[in-house]
């Protein structure tokens, strides 16, 4: 692909970089416990938690780095961090 004049880039191309490969621990969600408060979706620095059709969190493991912030902040302890098998 030809270079852009002046090193400008098209929006959101960072998505080509799948940061999920960095993960050591993986967040696993327990919808039984979840009250759909939305905290995890709000604070994920990877923008990798979305809402599913029923309003539960849905993780995009392509980008989740496994930082554990969501699990730490979940008021319902609905998220556990599980070691990735590699």
């Amino acid at each position: 692909m030809a270079l852009n004049v002046g090193c400008a880039g098209a929006p959101g191309r960072a998505r080509d970089n799948k940061t999920g490969s960095w993960r050591v621990f993986k967040p696993v969600f327990d919808n039984e416990k979840c009250n759909k408060c939305g905290t995890c979706m709000l604070i994920c620095p990877e923008v990798s938690i979305d809402e599913d059709a029923e309003g539960y969190p849905k993780v995009n493991y392509d980008y989740c780095k496994g930082c554990g912030l969501c699990a730490e902040e979940c008021p319902k302890d609905a998220i556990s961090m599980i070691q990735e098998e590699k």
Partner: peptide, 19 residues
């Protein structure tokens, strides 16, 4: 929308200077 003034790694920098 576009991002202006991104940084370039050794994989790209030299070509920008060439240009």
């Amino acid at each position: 929308p576009m991002s202006f003034g991104m940084y370039a790694t050794p994989d790209y920098y030299q070509e920008f200077r060439y240009e």
